[in-house]
Nucleic acid binder design. Structure first.
Length: 684
DNA sequence: TTTATTAAAGTTTTT
DNA sequence: CTTTAATAAA
């Protein structure tokens, strides 16, 4: 039985905000509402911060305030929505208090859980090199399980007369059930098939999927959270360790946390209850991922003694932009009443609304207008953004910006390393760290000529018997290990070569070389050849791999590199991997634009059915519509000075249904006095 | 195992 | 209409 011995520490109780030794003048640098939140005494606190009200500022000053009051950095846990925002916040704290943030834990729920699981891997039922499955990996594993259960599937299809759901559908049902802590059967009934009960079949497949993840020493995104919770329940001593360590917990974007994440906070704060959650119910846009903004609304009821702080001055947008935002969000029925006050002066122009003829013309409008704003008003490219509901809506804009030679970056749907070639390349690395990673082994095998799924599975069977795969001890020679696995004659030469390349990984002291060295061996020994042989656009892919290798240079641990690859989201990874020094216009989904701001914003495709998205509304009715409206609210409040609301009247590519587009109801809901309507003449 | 042919489905957001 | 998935043949 382990025992936690509590050191007597300085009471963290309400320190004097005006204490003489403080080097930051909190009262002068914050408005009274922010100041109250920043200097609040320990305990439960809910900070309701409207869009552009200095939410990040409040949080960073709160961290600085804790540090100023002798709280050690390692006693603070800062949970954020993206790793990028965690990094930015720490940079800002570091600016206030140079060199004082070392040892502070911060990041997304997923990355913090990952960190905990790696430290206590054995207790959590892993080895510390466990692999993280991204959505592609999960999907292919799930497809395999479904294939294994072909009989059951056929039976169910016969009984119900309907198609059995495919892997992505099952995964999303499963994920929703897990994240909301709802029984799978109920989720299946509510969200998939009201007519027939297929939940038993899905349950069976889900269980096998879970087992195969465990066999492969792998975790999907949801596992990172749930298995951390499992670890906490099965090992109270470990939980106590972290409860003791994290004396102060701060949570950003609380409106988008789901029940599992809520449980993690609750567990960690169990003994001391020093939790400050910050969020805005009007910006809750992740309900499809299990987030429920009832969480934020009900926080005070769930935790007696919660202090509530409201921060309602908007420092970002002009009054004209704000009045559009307020008019729209005001139509939602489920929300906290709030009054967002503009602090910025009017610039005497209203947001612009324009109907263009086609998506092409919409894109031309964006490009032309951007060029004008850049040339005539001197607005730099990186102060302009195009926002849209779905990635495909950026296609025409990309085309016309390219044509106009306007530099831009797209926050694509794909993570940087989710492209096939980078996944191929990392499969070798993953297998070294986690020899039980079946998917990586099969991927490697199938890159060899003449080897498909069947042969790969046979090879996997003998791989599993090797001491490396079963015990995890590095072999003294990879070439010997590979030689013991039979391959078809066609693949023999490449297989032998791979063995030699892997031998170069070993540093001769029972360990492996740093990631950068491994990757160079791999690239020169194996992958360069494969890439040239199997992709027609090999040169741009080569570019990616080289960029990736440069990115990996800064890592000393292969494991850390691989974790970061899985957990850093698209734009963050791209930021670090690609050069971002060039000044560019940003193209982004509204979701990914959360927390960002620009001087000039264009929202495109504001057509009924597109934004609000038809499916979102069909799926969850009024609730869905209100979430779409919150999304629109987020989009509008990204703009500081100029806002353009656009939609195409006619969509020639619409193959089903009516190509004529109606303006989004979000446009009709705005009082006409609040906007300038531009009528577009085409210059042809 | 790979490639060719045909049929079907697709139009959301992401750690 | 375009892209992807399933199926058949080489």
């Amino acid at each position: 039985m382990s025992r936690i011995y509590q050191l007597k520490r300085q009471p963290a109780g309400a320190p004097d905000p005006a204490s003489a030794h403080a080097s930051i003048d909190f009262a002068a640098e914050l408005n009274p509402q922010q100041f109250a939140a920043v200097t609040s005494p320990p305990g439960k606190a809910l900070v309701l911060a409207g869009a552009g009200s200095g939410k990040t500022r409040t949080l960073t000053y709160r961290v600085a305030y804790l540090l100023e009051n002798a709280i050690a950095p390692h006693n603070i846990l800062l949970l954020t929505f993206t790793n990028k925002s965690a990094r930015e916040m720490l940079e800002r704290v570091d600016h206030l208090l140079p060199g004082r943030t070392a040892g502070l834990w911060s990041g997304t729920f997923h990355s913090v859980c990952n960190r905990i699981l790696r430290r206590h891997a054995a207790a959590a039922g892993f080895t510390s090199g466990f692999s993280i499955l991204d959505s592609d990996d999960s999907k292919s594993l799930m497809s395999k399980v479904i294939k294994d259960n072909a009989e059951t599937v056929k039976q169910i299809e016969r009984a119900t007369g309907e198609k059995f759901p495919k892997a992505p559908v099952i995964l999303s049902l499963l994920s929703f059930a897990v994240n909301t802590r709802t029984p799978l059967a109920k989720v299946v009934r509510d969200r998939f098939s009201p007519g027939h009960d297929v939940s038993e079949g899905i349950r069976k497949i889900a269980d096998q999927y879970d087992q195969r993840k465990r066999d492969a020493n792998s975790a999907d995104f949801d596992d990172l959270l749930t298995r951390t919770l499992d670890l906490f329940s099965s090992h109270p001593g470990i939980l106590a360790e972290y409860q003791f360590q994290f004396q102060f917990i701060l949570v950003d974007e609380y409106q988008d946390t789901n029940p599992v994440q809520g449980e993690i906070i609750e567990k960690l704060a169990g003994t001391h209850g020093n939790v400050m959650v910050v969020g805005d119910d009007a910006q809750s846009i992740y309900s499809w991922r299990g987030a429920d903004f009832a969480n934020i609304i009900g926080f005070p009821e769930r935790h007696s003694g919660t202090q509530v702080f409201k921060i309602e001055t908007n420092y970002r947008s002009t009054p004209e932009i704000l009045s559009v935002a307020n008019a729209s969000i005001g139509l939602n029925t489920r929300q906290f009443a709030k009054a967002l006050q503009p602090a910025c002066a009017s610039l005497q122009h209203k947001p612009v609304m324009a109907a263009l003829y086609t998506p092409e013309e919409q894109a031309m409008f964006v490009a032309q207008r951007m060029q004008e704003l850049h040339d005539e008003e001197g607005i730099p490219w990186n102060e302009m953004a195009v926002l849209y509901r779905a990635h495909f809506q950026s296609m025409e804009v990309q085309l016309h910006l390219t044509r106009a030679a306007i530099p831009f970056v797209v926050t694509s749907g794909l993570r940087f390393f989710e492209s096939a070639h980078l996944k191929d390349f990392t499969a070798y690395l993953r297998l070294i760290v986690n020899p039980r990673d079946d998917a990586s082994f099969e991927r490697i095998a199938q890159m060899l000529p003449g080897i498909g799924a069947g042969t790969a599975a046979k090879m996997l069977a003998s791989w599993r018997l090797s001491p490396f795969a079963s015990s995890g001890t590095l072999p003294t020679s990879f070439s010997d290990l590979l030689a013991s696995i039979k391959v078809p004659a066609r693949a023999q030469a490449d297989w032998t070569q791979l063995g030699f390349t892997l031998d170069e990984f070993l540093d001769g002291n029972g360990g492996i070389h740093p990631p950068a060295t491994l990757m160079r061996s791999l690239w020169e020994g194996v992958y360069q050849k494969h890439l040239k042989a199997s992709f027609d656009n090999a040169s741009s892919r080569t570019e990616d791999v080289l960029q990736f290798m440069a990115f990996a240079d800064r890592y000393e641990s292969l494991q850390d590199l691989l974790s970061d690859l899985s957990l850093l989201s698209g734009p963050e990874a791209a930021d670090s991997a690609k050069s971002k020094d060039r000044e560019s216009v940003v193209l982004s989904t509204v979701h990914q634009a959360k927390g960002l701001e620009w001087k000039v914003v264009f929202i495109v495709w504001l057509a009924q059915g597109m934004f609000p998205n038809l499916r979102a509304v069909e799926e969850s009715g009024d609730l869905g519509l209100e979430e779409e409206r919150r999304l629109f609210y987020v989009a509008v409040t990204r703009a500081r000075e100029q806002l353009h609301l656009l939609y195409p009247r006619f969509w020639p590519k619409s193959y089903a249904g009516d190509p004529w587009q109606q303006p989004s109801q979000f446009l009709s809901e705005i009082p006409s006095t609040a906007i300038d309507e531009w009528r577009i003449g085409s210059g042809f």
